[in-house]
Simulated scan of single mutants.
Amino acid sequence: MNAYITGSSLVCNIGDNKQDIISNLKNISPETYKENLQEILKDKTFYKIYDYDYSNEKRFQKILEKVVLDAVKEAKLSKEEQEDLHIFLGSTSMEMGTNEQFKDEFDNGSSNLEFKNIGNGAIGQYVEKLINSKHKATLFSTACTSSVNALAYASKMIEKKKIKRAIVIGFELFNKSTFGGFSSLMLLSQSKIYRPFDKNSDGIILGEGCSAVVLEGEKKEENNFKYISSSNICDNYSETTSDPSGTPIFEAMNSALKNAKLQVKDLDCIKAHATGSENNNSSEAKALAQLFNSYEEEKTQVTALKPILGHTLGACGTNEIVLMLEAIKNSFLPATFGFEEAIDDLAFTPILEHKSCENKQTILLNYVAFGGNNSSIILSNKD
């Protein structure tokens, strides 16, 4: 049995539905990118989801509800199929922003409740109730690979006929703790321009994003993408930086190809993790060079999506998958905005402008996380 993506949804800084997101993305060009960023980052150097002006708790619930119900609707699930959805959640901060609000209200005397919840089980319970699922939710928190690991795990369970269908949700909303943590590590961009693989890159710009993917054992539409393979490789070089050689990142991508019995030439595009930090720029670039060299100089196109979405941490797996697949269904590969001057010895030039493509593609999506958790996943809607 195979695992197919039959429904998906995304809420991010450029829209809260896929139609608007793709329309807005098409209107961004290398020339308008910096001007567009000034508007996005006008309040804070952070890619914010707009138009959800509620308390932190209500905002969290409203955005989560939006992506879940939109994905279920697109998958055209019956009431019985919806209730049979196994729930997989991937996030770095979980409900941290909501708990910060509760703590602030406790400290200023407006509430006698110091924390909303201890632990994160309430998030799963919220989704269980929302779709009336008869299954308990499973939470993944492996830093920036959280939601892609959740999707790979759910896909494998469907392949092995352990479950029939699943919904995988990635979510990351602003909280002071995460923002302050990255700031203290001096990883945040001061120039307010996201520049993957660029010599003038000065760091990461964080962002909010929430997405959902419905997986089922049977294809429903001709262009449904199928899970092909994945790989998860741990890098024990450092808690917060990748091995400078790039070898563990290469091993994740190469293992995904070998698991799929594919070669680089079989890929139409690689979506790089591309955080824009000095370490990730260098280590992932070396990993891609190793990948191309190991397949006798075979190459494929490379793009990066964080200049569009911001770095959405644990949610970037499903967020970037939904955006990438939707762009392909609209017959283009997204550009890597912000790239102008390559870092030393870069073995490729990323896609610089939106590039027309067939709406049938095989892609590898790469993710690199704190703690050395590296994941690659291959998806395809080719016959």
Rank of each mutant, 00 (worst) to 15 (best):
T145S: 14
L325E: 13
S110H: 09
E31A: 12
S376C: 06
I5K: 02
E57I: 14
N99H: 05
G317S: 02
I169C: 01
D16T: 08
S294L: 07
K26G: 12
N112Q: 14
E358P: 03
N359C: 09
L262V: 04
Q101D: 14
K164L: 12
H273C: 09
K306Q: 12
P244K: 03
Y237S: 13
L379C: 04
S155M: 09
K134D: 02
E239G: 15
F106A: 10
T45A: 12
T98F: 01
F197H: 07
G7C: 14
A122E: 07
K79L: 15
S78C: 10
D345G: 07
P350R: 12
N259Q: 08
P307T: 00
S211A: 10
E222M: 01
I363V: 15
Y194P: 00
I193C: 11
E105S: 10
L323Y: 04
I270C: 07
C12M: 07
A137N: 02
E95A: 15
K26Y: 01
L151P: 14
K219G: 13
L379T: 00
M96A: 08
I63T: 01
K73N: 15
L309P: 10
L139M: 14
K134R: 01
S133A: 08
N2R: 14
F102P: 04
S242G: 06
D84Y: 05
S191A: 10
Y295Q: 11
S183P: 11
P30N: 09
K44N: 04
S141Y: 14
L291P: 05
F46V: 09
L379N: 01
H86G: 06
E35Q: 12
I28K: 07
G207P: 04
S8P: 01
A274K: 03
A260M: 00
V168D: 05
K58I: 15
A347I: 07
L346S: 11
S9H: 01
N36E: 10
G121I: 09
V322W: 03
V322L: 05
L323N: 02
L25N: 13
L113I: 15
I87F: 13
F225Q: 10
N56H: 11
I205W: 02
L206V: 12
K258E: 03
S133V: 00
F339V: 07
Q301F: 11
V11I: 02
S211R: 00
S9T: 05
S147Y: 01
S184T: 09
G338Q: 11
N374F: 02
N175V: 01
V264T: 08
A369E: 07
K258I: 11
I249R: 02
I270Y: 05
T92V: 13
H311T: 08
A152M: 15
E251N: 07
P196G: 10
F179N: 02
D243W: 06
N149M: 12
S184E: 10
K134F: 03
I22T: 04
D243H: 00
Q290R: 06
F370V: 08
K58F: 15
N17V: 04
H135A: 09
D104R: 01
N36D: 12
E65G: 00
N281L: 13
C234K: 00
E81P: 01
F46N: 05
N132D: 06
Y126L: 08
S110W: 06
I233T: 00
C269R: 05
F106C: 11
T247W: 03
E251W: 08
K176Q: 03
P196D: 15
Q101Y: 09
K58D: 15
D104L: 10
H86P: 08
S255N: 06
V302E: 13
K176L: 03
